[in-house]
């Protein structure tokens, strides 16, 4: 009977040997969904003879949770500004020194000494943009540059609104509408925010990240969204207009970084350098429809990108507000407000 046991043991051991070993010439990218130019990937594969595997996430926090859980096998991630800071603090990113790479001279100097990665020792710009909302001007004819459209909806828009399913984006918009500060630990002010959100929610139809699809399918006529997504939605629904609310809106930058312990470190470094080439950065912009922070990429960008109202901010629009990560007490308070909102 012993051979049987041996076979059985071998069979069960076999299941654990089958851990995916990374062959040479691979690069595993973990980026936001629907955010990577296939053309750019093909070019990188052809130039460097590597196979790129792509996986997607829908929020910084989803990505962080997965990376923290460990053994993801990913090489490249594309975290937002505050998340870069968090991940550096948590020792999750490899210090690959992009500032010493060949193409670093192309990075717009405005985006080098950023608060989330001063001097760019870990990350490089991928795309940057704003988070506001876009609205169908055929459905609503009035002034769109105010957050009142989301929080005190006119009759035409009642029940036709999508908000991002994102705690920070929704609460920050509420704080701006009421004129309170970001990362707000003031309980009286947060109580007001909760009341505002609860009342406004009656007029919201959905809370979802897939904003382009919600707008183009005709499910909603107003959606909180990012500027590039607004531009992509406008291509299919020309009456949409991106708003620059007078109360303010969020600015953000997503950055390419390498994970600590990346299985394909050398390819990851090649990719970082590759992404600082103006032509390659422009490919990403032409796909995702955001600005990229790489000097000289304009000449490779589609003509309609250069004067798109979603990218070129009008005179008099408020400066985008880059939001820093909040302390844990504030996150806890936000959590409770968010759970109350969705209970």
């Amino acid at each position: 009977m012993k051979p049987t046991i041996r076979i059985a043991a071998a069979a069960s051991a076999f299941a654990f040997v089958a851990v995916a070993a990374n062959a040479e010439g691979e690069l595993n990218i973990y980026n936001w969904g629907n955010y990577t130019s296939p053309e750019m990937i093909e070019k990188f594969e052809a130039e460097n003879d590597v196979t790129v595997n792509l996986d997607g996430y829908d929020s910084n926090e989803t990505m962080l949770a997965k990376v923290q859980a460990g053994n993801t096998g990913y090489d490249i991630v594309v975290p937002g500004d505050y998340m870069i800071k968090v991940m550096i603090e948590q020792d999750l990113l490899e210090e690959v020194k992009p500032n010493e790479m060949e193409n670093f001279g192309n990075v717009d100097p405005d985006w080098v000494d950023v608060w989330w990665d001063p001097g760019r020792n870990y990350s490089i710009p991928y795309q940057w943009g704003t988070t506001s909302f876009t609205v169908d001007t055929e459905v609503y004819g009035g002034d769109i540059d105010t957050l009142a459209l989301m929080f005190d909806a006119p009759d035409e828009l009642k029940g036709r609104i999508n908000m991002l399913n994102d705690m920070n984006d929704v609460i920050n918009a509420g704080l701006r509408y009421l004129g309170y500060g970001r990362c707000n630990g003031n309980e009286d002010e947060m109580r007001e925010v909760l009341e505002l959100l609860l009342a406004a929610k009656e007029d919201w139809r959905t809370m979802d990240y897939s904003t382009i699809e919600k707008l183009t399918s005709g499910d909603v006529d107003l959606s909180q969204t990012w500027n590039g997504a607004a531009m992509r939605a406008r291509a299919q629904r020309p009456t949409l207009k991106y708003a620059y609310p007078k109360e303010g809106f969020t600015g953000w930058m997503d950055n390419v970084a390498v994970l600590k312990g990346a299985p394909n470190l050398e390819n990851a470094k090649l990719f970082i350098n590759f992404m600082m080439d103006p032509e390659n950065a422009a490919m990403t912009s032409n796909f995702a429809r955001y600005a990229n922070g790489i000097t000289g990429s304009e000449e490779f960008m589609d003509a309609e990108m250069l004067d798109a109202p979603e990218i070129v901010m009008p005179d008099g629009a408020p400066t985008p507000d880059f939001v820093t990560p909040c302390p844990q007490e504030v996150v806890d308070l936000y959590n409770r407000v968010w759970t109350r909102l969705k209970q």
């Binding site: 989803t62 949770a65 705690m167 959905t206 996150v331 959590n335 969705k342």
Partner: peptide, 21 residues
């Protein structure tokens, strides 16, 4: 469901994401 109300599964999922708990 449109994401306006939480169900158990979704509520558990966000604890590992934006709720950081």
């Amino acid at each position: 469901g449109g994401g306006k109300k939480l169900m158990i599964g979704n509520m558990i999922a966000i604890q590992f994401g934006s709720s950081r708990n």
